[in-house]
């Protein structure tokens, strides 16, 4: 008969729970035996300030089970002809990414056309198979010019590739996304394509809201390009409509810092009512105690 008085019953219950948990852990440990295929993706970013970074993503599984390979060691190299320069060996984060920020002084080995090859290698382990990949990167220079003709505003973008000797060579047929920087993100305006001179022209509307003095920040973005990766460039100009951003104080609401008065009053009334009764009953006890004295 089960009885809580019996010490053996307690010991048996604890042992039973222990056995169940250990068995469950064993089962889960045995289920992971086969190496999973790993996919590698390489990304190159050049920011507005000229900072450059290389990002590698390692993923395994597919569909709902797709996941990043964490703590995987990835070796990054730059290759030119037969020579290889090791850039870094990094460990992936919990989402399976490594990021290498390139120092502004660092010049990647490049051929006479200005192309650099970045290669990445992951050796794999007991769980994940090895993976490798590479990408070609060329440096690009984006230049803005602002022109106004008969009250029509034209934004010119000039795209030049930098070759191995530092010469600028116009890039033809390059897709560039133009947008305006808003508070949280870039508001897209239009996608333009460069001509044989590496130039693209975009007419800017007169009614774009700017800041208090009408300043607008135009952003040009090249995205996932095979030659240049992801490049961002921006420039500001007083082509916007001046907008006053005077912040009006919000009335007391659920979402403001200060709660509505009715809410504070309700909470206070309820709490005062409850605690009044508490202290009333305590006062009865004090009277009781006094009677004994």
């Amino acid at each position: 008969m089960f009885s809580l008085k019996n010490i053996y019953t307690w010991i048996s219950l604890i042992l039973l729970f222990g056995t169940v948990f250990i068995s469950a852990n064993q089962l889960s440990a045995n289920s992971a035996a086969k190496q999973e295929r790993v996919r590698m993706k390489l990304y190159y970013f050049k920011t507005d300030a000229g900072d450059r970074k290389i990002q590698i993503g390692l993923t395994a599984g597919s569909g709902k089970n797709m996941h990043g390979v964490k703590n995987g060691k990835v070796m990054l190299t730059s290759q030119l002809n037969d020579s290889t320069v090791t850039l870094a060996t990094l460990e992936t984060d919990t989402l399976g990414f490594v990021t290498l920020f390139l120092s502004p002084d660092l010049k990647l080995p490049m051929d006479e056309d200005g192309k650099s090859i970045i290669a990445a290698n992951y050796d794999g382990d007991d769980i994940y198979a090895s993976a490798s990949g590479d990408m070609e990167i060329s440096d690009i220079d984006l230049e803005f010019t602002f022109e106004e003709e008969d009250s029509v505003k034209y934004l010119n973008i000039l795209a030049n590739r930098i070759d191995g000797e530092g010469n600028k060579i116009p890039v033809e047929g390059l897709d560039i996304n133009i947008g305006v920087q808003r508070l949280y993100s870039v508001l897209p305006i239009e996608k333009v394509e460069t001509d044989e001179d590496g130039s693209a022209v975009l007419e800017i509307s007169n009614d774009l809201p700017g800041d208090a003095v009408g300043l607008l920040t135009f952003v040009a973005r090249i995205e996932d390009n095979d030659d240049f990766g992801n490049v961002t460039k921006s420039a500001s100009h007083e082509w916007g409509t001046p907008v006053s951003y005077e912040i009006k104080p919000l009335p007391r609401q659920l979402w403001t810092d200060e709660a509505p008065i009715w809410m504070i009053a309700s909470v206070c009334i309820i709490l005062m009512g409850a605690w009044y009764h508490f202290f009333l009953s305590i006062s009865k006890l004090i009277k009781l105690k006094k009677l004994s004295d």
């Binding site: 305590i282 009865k284 006890l285 009781l288 004994s292």
Partner: peptide, 24 residues
């Protein structure tokens, strides 16, 4: 025990304290 001796008055106060707390 707060010096409770079971006098009628003490009983009354304790009962009141019970009821107030139970009601709240």
């Amino acid at each position: 025990a707060l010096g409770y001796k079971g006098t009628d008055e003490q009983k009354k106060y304790l009962h009141q304290a019970h009821d107030i707390m139970a009601a709240i």
